[in-house]
């Protein structure tokens, strides 16, 4: 192509670009992958807003927050989507987020009224095993059993951190004791969820730390009903994933529009079978069929968001002590 043609093409293209507003959303990698909710959500929102939705990936939730801290107020991001309850207090401390203006009516097991962050999906952590085996019904029973489990390291993995907070919330000062008792059940500790789940599927352990919704994947995508999540009498720790609007956004209206869209049907209805989590607003068509077979924990546990940081550091020290013996 001749140089002047290139320039002409650029000139012709640039006004069009300038007219189309762009919204940049930072999210974790698995959200925007082909197997995640990203592609469907991008298409639906762009049809609605007449804008361009840029989904930018950055590792996982913790990496996302790290990236934001690196960029500070100069960040291109208008929205950050994919922080979870364990990261909210750290995210708030950055001072980079601004209050949203969205009225909410959420289907969550507990009340939500955070001024900065809006949930978009949630789930319960649970141990997942094979149907038909004799399974424990509590942490104490598990610790006394011969069942082998594979878990994730809280220092590098979100579910690993969830388990740490789960045990700490249930057992308080006795958490270290429980970990010491669990030590002989733990086959190994993996860096992330994928490795642990892969090991479990290969038969390396009887149980893996995952979500109550994991069996739904096998049921819906593979027509395999052999996986079950274990209901624990102590209750189940929750993970709530949230999004927030950045104070430095140059598209505040569009950002609000996205947050409203996030709680609408087009977004919420793709969550169950892409992120394999519960939607925060029940879609018009209800939940997919397989979800009705999942266990429904009677007690939902979540550490108070403001104390999560301090509790986490304490719990990590106990975890390290108990498992390094």
């Amino acid at each position: 192509m001749k140089p002047h043609l290139v320039i002409a093409a650029l000139l012709a293209a640039s006004p069009a670009l300038a007219q189309t507003p762009q919204l940049t959303v930072y999210t974790y990698d698995s959200f925007l992958s082909e197997w995640g909710p990203g592609p469907a959500i991008k298409q639906a929102f762009e049809t609605e807003c007449g804008c361009v939705l840029n989904l930018v990936g950055a590792g996982d939730g913790a990496a996302l927050l790290g990236r934001l801290k690196l960029e500070g107020a100069r960040s291109d991001a208008d929205i950050v989507l994919g922080l979870d309850t364990g990261l909210i207090s750290a995210a708030r401390e950055t001072g980079l987020f601004v209050a949203h203006t969205i009225e909410t009516d959420l289907d969550l097991p507990l009340e939500w009224n955070d001024p900065l962050f809006l949930p978009y999906d949630w789930g319960y952590f649970a141990f997942v095993g094979n149907r038909g085996e004799a399974h424990s019904t509590s942490f104490r029973e598990l610790a006394e059993s011969e069942q082998k489990i594979v878990i994730q390291d809280p220092r590098s993995s979100t579910p690993g951190l969830g388990l740490l907070m789960w045990v700490k919330s249930v057992f308080g000062d006795e958490a270290e004791e429980i970990w010491a008792a669990l030590a002989d059940n733990i086959v190994t500790v993996t860096p992330g969820w994928s490795e642990a789940y892969g090991l479990f599927l290969e038969g390396e352990a009887d149980l893996v730390l995952s979500y109550t919704t994991s069996p739904a994947y096998h049921l819906i995508a593979e027509e395999d009903d052999s996986k079950v999540a274990l209901p624990f009498s102590e209750g189940h720790y929750m993970q709530i994933e949230v999004a927030g609007k950045l104070a430095a956004t140059d598209q505040p209206e569009l950002a609000d529009q996205f947050l409203r869209f996030m709680l609408g049907d087009a977004f919420q209805s793709v969550i169950p079978t892409t992120n394999w989590m519960y939607p925060v607003v029940l879609p018009d068509g209800g939940l997919p069929d397989g979800f009705s077979t999942l266990i429904q924990p009677e007690t939902a546990i979540l550490a108070p968001i403001d104390q999560a940081g301090a509790l986490r550091d304490l719990a990590l020290d106990e975890w390290l002590r108990a498992l390094s013996r």
Partner: peptide, 19 residues
């Protein structure tokens, strides 16, 4: 990562992350 230009190892990671 750029969603359009994932490499094969990244794609394997994504597949595993999606069960």
């Amino acid at each position: 990562a750029d969603p359009e230009r994932a490499t094969l190892p990244l794609e394997i990671l994504r597949l595993m992350g999606a069960y």
